[in-house]
Design a protein around this nucleic acid. Sequence first.
DNA 1: CTTTAAACTTAGTCATGTATAAATAAAAGT
DNA 2: ACTTTTATTTATACATGACTAAGTTTAAAG
Lengths: 236, 236
Amino acid sequence: MIILDESKKILSESQEDYLKQIYLLIEDPQGIVGTQALAERIGVAPASATAMLHKLRALGLVHYAEYRGVSLTESGRKVALELLRHHRLLESFLQTALGYGWEEVHDEAERLEHYISETFETRMALWLGEPEFDPHGDPIPNADLVFPVVRTETSLTKLGAGFEGQIVRVATQDRDELNLLSHLHLLPGRFVKIAESGSNGVRLNVLNVDTSRQGNHFLIPLSLAARIFLQEGQPS
Amino acid sequence: MIILDESKKILSESQEDYLKQIYLLIEDPQGIVGTQALAERIGVAPASATAMLHKLRALGLVHYAEYRGVSLTESGRKVALELLRHHRLLESFLQTALGYGWEEVHDEAERLEHYISETFETRMALWLGEPEFDPHGDPIPNADLVFPVVRTETSLTKLGAGFEGQIVRVATQDRDELNLLSHLHLLPGRFVKIAESGSNGVRLNVLNVDTSRQGNHFLIPLSLAARIFLQEGQPS
DNA sequence: CTTTAAACTTAGTCATGTATAAATAAAAGT
DNA sequence: ACTTTTATTTATACATGACTAAGTTTAAAG
């Protein structure tokens, strides 16, 4: 339900979802996505994606040439970022203000991101104190859709034994993975030390602030370790 | 997006709106609405309403006989009440938690009521302390969709000069009316005295708790007075 | 180069929710 | 009762967003 510039055109939930998924599939800002990958991500047949891409191109929201793939135009990117901001603010708000559990948050935000007004967005951000990162550690674009300055974060899989640092990001929305991490207290903010890094996974030592659980250690499978990002440092 | 009983069928926003408006148009629970009135309220052509009524009848949500009008079945009523609960909780929440202004609240709630989950509903109610009335003074059905016990409220137009009481309900969603009342501090909770009641309207004396604005008085036109409800009593 | 498999698009349907125009039923007036 | 007006319904059509089946392009392999 995002309103387009001066033209005051309104996008459907579907159209918004396409733009968002194109954005998320293109890490590199100059990249391109294929119809198939996009369709799969959204959960429709490839032919349906083709049809939608024609519409979005007509609206000036995507660059698209038949058989050549899609990318976002400037205005398409704005819509995607607006949605991303809504989503991440909602996740923060639901958890902080309404006491949602770590895993309950995603689906609700996914639905509501299309329907909240700019006012709602603004008030949530105010309530939360204009946060720069959501509970997963993902960056939240500000009101002008600019991302906060990037932190020096590195995936667990790219660090060696002995490294000490703080979890700053957990790049998954999977309920089971989140539930696991939540119970292990491996969430953004936590300090850990890498005990061992092998082909089975990464063995982590939890460096707690309170000493009660000090020294807990876990073997994190590689697939999950790849989604956890650290920043060097020690508990203060 | 309300889910139907065990059948797990999902209603569209449109279908939900029809049910809600049928409910609101039938004050008397045994009443009946015509196609025209319904269509007008929803903002579609009468023929479109007819088409939708056929669908809702097929879903067992309305009693409907061609040319004879519509009413809600038990399950239709449940959907309407669920929506009403969402709406009124949202209005309360937006105002109380997010600092929305009195007049900004309605449109946002109207949109979001269709998309929030049961979880969201529950958490809002908890946050607000399971309120029985929304900021307009309208009753909020509880989680089992039962209304709170009715208060003895009477419309301003049915009371005579000399009556003293508290505003308990302001039955309008009109932005201009709400804005006016808001600036006059004539909102639920306020104590007032009827100075005069005539064909031009009702002249009110504001009985403030703090003495600063004590004695303000306004002439409220009849059309508006009819929407303000009082309960007998004096400021304590 | 040519062949072939994978990716992608076109063509033709379908379900929803809307609209208009024309037909029909109910209500009201004389 | 008969006619007129109003309310309502039927018939038909359109836009959206999805699907399947069939055809086309591209890229990779020989």
